[in-house]
Write a protein that binds this DNA or RNA. Structure first.
Lengths: 337, 337
DNA sequence: AAACGCCTTGACAACGCTGTCATCATCGCG
DNA sequence: CGCGATGATGACAGCGTTGTCAAGGCGTTT
């Protein structure tokens, strides 16, 4: 174990006071170029690394960003983490992950952690992005936060998102463009704001194309494989079958795929299937799923950015927000009639 | 934002010195029961939460555990995190996640973070559990670590694992019990220690049952869907087909499943397929995959435990280790001939 | 040449806690 | 009844940074 070297060592080595070293470290202005170079040389020579605890105790920054999640789709969570960390690394921040059980007492879970850890900010993933108690707790403790893909109450705090409605619209257009006229839709979990927007995109596209939106072609799902499976059984059970099914997330689409396999329907020959999210599972199936790639990585990165650089919010002005681009990923599960 | 309340507030409120409050907080002995109660009452009344930065600056504990991972199977990583956090919560520890790119410069990634963060310990997930440079860096910085499912060099440091060989052995037995005699095996990524052990389990079970282990029935894979797919194409391409395929992880098994679907082979009627890991994907397919449930959650919990309570290592004695139980999960993808 | 102002630097006090050591009360025991 | 051992508590000095403020150097203005 190498002996811990502190700012004092660097100060001695470079012949300045510790305060000046601190200035160089924090890129503060008003340090002579010459001095700065000497200090930086000493830092490099000694391989000095500032102690994060001391920094956060003395200063206002903690160099810690939290990520809260609940009932995670593993792929989503991992992606968020990787996206956030990529940005954090550059600025010397670290990521603390905290699962939050939204069905349990929020106050009890969140408040203590916020108080002990005094993070610089936290990233909220769905469905936590829309959980009132979580937002409240954060606000009460005065910890800045950024919501990823919030469903509503958009003026409350900064957020990062993508245009779910538009993405669903385009996916539906894709199907229509392939010649499909009878397209079914499986709705996602009502607690997720995005679910409603995706449905709207589907409805809008159908309307705009002059196609009917039949009630019996829209099934309620819960974003789970099982719910997709069940919805597909209803949809494909009778003789009157849609030629395409657009499930509003991949897990459900995989459920549809399972039913199709079971019924020995050729995909996409007899049935086109589209998903949403581009989870790893989308590729882990045959045929591979046509889906929408969410910019999860980028959204998390943007959220981290906002938090690290301080989310400046002007009085009265709407909170900062970003809408990032999605991408339609056309693979083999959709095809012409 | 509630005003920060410190140990001094608690001390004043309960009429003792801050040191005594500290003693109560840390469950140190030699505090009168009466005093302890008064302090605890004050803590509760004021909702006092010790500041973690101050604690780690002053004391020896940082209340921070790291989790290192690389190229994660998202399900695995999330599981590890949840398992570790569940234990950490009880003791007031928090989890820092750090992806480590094993193909890049390890020293550069790991050393600075270890120096700034001074965590109490880190949990290593495969394939990092067997990455020499990572182990070295950790040792040099004097940070304790626990390896999850290491492949070798078992006397070097504490570890937690399961018996991969035995699990594969039992899965093969399961297949044999179903009446299969011609069972193919898809080997995992050679960098993962577990891959070799699983293969050994397969070989042992075949031998013990007096069944031949044919070279052309053992394919090399890489733990990826694609590699499973390709291996299956070779295995199922000709007329001489095995009646069962045991892929040494779920992703590869799903690749096999995809090929089977494509060839319109009935699973499990014409072909039984077994996986390993019980990832979420195992249920996200039809028929659902027979597989082995790894005790990932428990392994991570055990690792966190070791780290929090200090991994005592006696001179010369082997490092502490734990082998946890796996579970054979029989679902629909395997059946009698 | 005096006065002013900006740039650069350093001394020193926090930050909120734990570790160390001293102090005092209490207890057992010869 | 006195004395050492032990229990209970507190005073105080760090831990390694940043924040605050003061001071000196130097160029510019009047």
């Amino acid at each position: 174990m190498s002996a811990k070297i502190t700012i004092h060592d660097v100060a001695r080595e470079s012949g300045v006071s510790i305060k000046t070293v601190s200035r160089v470290l924090n890129r503060e202005p008003n340090v002579k170029a010459d001095t700065r170079d000497r200090v930086q040389a000493a830092v490099a020579a000694l391989k000095y690394r500032p102690n994060i605890s001391a920094r956060s105790l003395a200063g206002s920054k903690a160099y810690l960003i939290g990520v809260f999640f609940d009932n995670p789709s593993p792929g989503y969570v991992t992606d968020v983490q990787l996206g956030a960390i990529a940005r954090c690394r550059q600025e010397g921040f670290h990521l603390i992950v905290e699962p939050v059980d939204s069905t349990a007492d929020i106050e009890e879970q969140v408040a203590p952690m916020l108080a002990t850890l005094r993070m610089d900010g936290v990233i909220l993933t769905p469905p936590l992005s829309d959980h009132p108690a979580v937002l409240e707790a954060l606000e009460r403790e005065g910890v800045p936060y950024v919501r990823i893909a919030p469903g509503g109450d958009l003026d409350r705090a900064p957020w990062v998102s993508m245009d779910d409605r538009l993405a669903a619209y385009e996916m539906t257009r894709h199907l229509i463009g392939l010649g499909h006229k009878d397209i079914a839709f499986i709705v996602g979990h009502p607690d997720h704001g995005a679910a409603m927007q995706r449905r709207q995109g589907y409805v809008d596209a159908m309307r705009d194309a002059g196609l009917p939106v039949r009630d019996d072609r829209v099934e309620q799902g819960w974003f789970s494989f099982r719910s997709g499976f069940e919805a597909a059984e209803k949809l494909l059970g009778g003789a009157d079958r849609p030629t395409a099914i657009f499930a509003s997330n991949d897990d459900m689409a995989l459920g549809v795929m399972a039913v199709a396999n079971r019924l020995r329907l050729d995909v996409p020959g007899q049935l086109s299937i589209a998903g949403f999210d581009d989870t790893p599972g989308a590729k882990i199936t045959w045929p591979q799923l046509t889906t929408v790639r969410q910019p999860i990585h980028a959204m998390a990165g943007a959220a981290a950015d906002m938090l690290m650089h301080g989310v400046e919010q002007e009085e009265g002005a709407p909170p900062p927000s970003q809408v990032l681009d999605f991408e339609l990923v056309v693979r083999e599960s959709t095809g012409a009639l």
